[in-house]
């Protein structure tokens, strides 16, 4: 049995499930809306709604989106619910720990990474990262700097509104709350890299031709989309990225890099639950099948 934590509208999960169906390998998809329970019966039993699965029958786990959790706000009382929550967290951590003992993609712990720690570790692994600093006041520099959210989110929703926090190139001095300033790196192309258990699939994104997407390619130009084609990383860069992923205890992730006009590889960030469909489809890598094969074996 393969256990998959995911969401109803995740097309990548659906594509992987298609291959598992072809192979005739049983799998169960757990959604965030499911009600989960755990008991020690039969050396560990999971209940997903009415469905019962023994831990010993699970041979692979894919933490695509989410992890084992117990929903509880039984008392509608802050203190009582807090007590219950603290109690449940112990159970959740234990079950997730057990689930991570088998072959897995992603992990319960690795759903989020700290950008500042990632950058420090990237430097320690020998990767080039753009100069950056956390400051309140920004003084006009000789070099161009950009400001972006330290959590990596470019937008969030509030009620019926979407608040977009663009990546901005700075020309003046500014004062603000503590902000993440990063030296602007000229790019020949961007790289989006999918990493899975020591293997790399890379895509080059040619965005420089298009002024609309120069700082952040996620601002799509639908008329003339950026060119996305397969790319091979130099082995020295792969070794440094492997070092980073291992030091972060990540077995999978989506990595962003820049290749500068002088062909230097610059590391930007890693997302442990990044979309791989956006690398797989344009490059015809068929990562959905790679994942299904990994989970099946």
């Amino acid at each position: 049995m393969i256990l998959i934590f995911s969401e109803v509208n995740d097309l990548s999960t659906l594509a992987v499930a298609g291959y598992l169906d072809d192979y005739g390998v049983p799998y169960t998809v757990v959604l965030k809306t499911d009600t989960l329970r755990y008991t020690d019966a039969d050396k560990g039993t999971l209940y997903i709604g009415e469905n019962k699965i023994c831990l010993k029958d699970i041979h692979a786990v894919w933490f695509r989106r989410g992890k084992f959790f117990i929903r509880s706000n039984a008392f509608k009382d802050r203190e009582l619910d807090l007590y219950l929550y603290e109690n449940n967290v112990i159970i959740e951590d234990y079950v997730n720990y057990k689930l991570e003992q088998v072959k897995s993609i992603g992990s319960a712990a690795g759903l989020h990474v700290n950008k500042l720690i990632v950058l420090e570790k990237a430097k320690a692994c020998g990767l080039t990262v753009p100069d950056y600093c956390l400051e309140h006041d920004f003084q006009q520099q000789d070099a161009t700097y950009i400001v972006k959210g330290v959590n990596g989110n470019t937008h969030f929703n509030s009620d019926q509104l979407r608040i977009i926090l663009p990546v901005v190139k700075l020309n003046d001095s500014h004062s603000s709350g503590l902000s993440f300033f990063q030296r602007y790196t000229e790019k020949k192309y961007e790289l989006r890299i999918f990493y899975l258990h020591g293997r790399f699939w890379s895509m080059a994104i040619f965005s420089q031709n298009d002024p609309q997407t120069t700082t952040d390619f996620r601002k799509y130009n639908k008329e003339r989309p950026n060119r996305n084609i397969p790319y091979t990383l130099p082995t020295a860069i792969e070794a440094k990225l492997t070092c980073l992923m291992e030091s972060l205890s990540l077995n999978t992730g989506s990595i962003d890099m820049i290749v500068t006009p002088s062909l230097e590889h610059v590391f930007l960030e890693v997302n442990p639950v990044g979309q791989f469909g956006m690398v797989s489809l344009p490059c015809n890598y068929n990562l959905e099948k790679e994942i299904a094969d990994f989970l099946k074996s």
């Binding site: 594509a15 298609g18 291959y19 169906d21 072809d22 080059a204 040619f206 060119r227 084609i229 397969p230 790319y231 091979t232 990383l233 130099p234 062909l263 490059c283 015809n284 890598y285 068929n286 099948k289």
Partner: peptide, 25 residues
């Protein structure tokens, strides 16, 4: 198409696989 400055850069762009894949009988 685009220009590459060296053979090393040129070789970093492998041909795209033309395999057809997809699940379902």
């Amino acid at each position: 198409g685009f220009y590459c400055e060296s053979l090393e850069e040129f070789n970093r762009f492998p041909p795209m696989s033309t395999a057809f894949s997809g699940s379902g009988k």
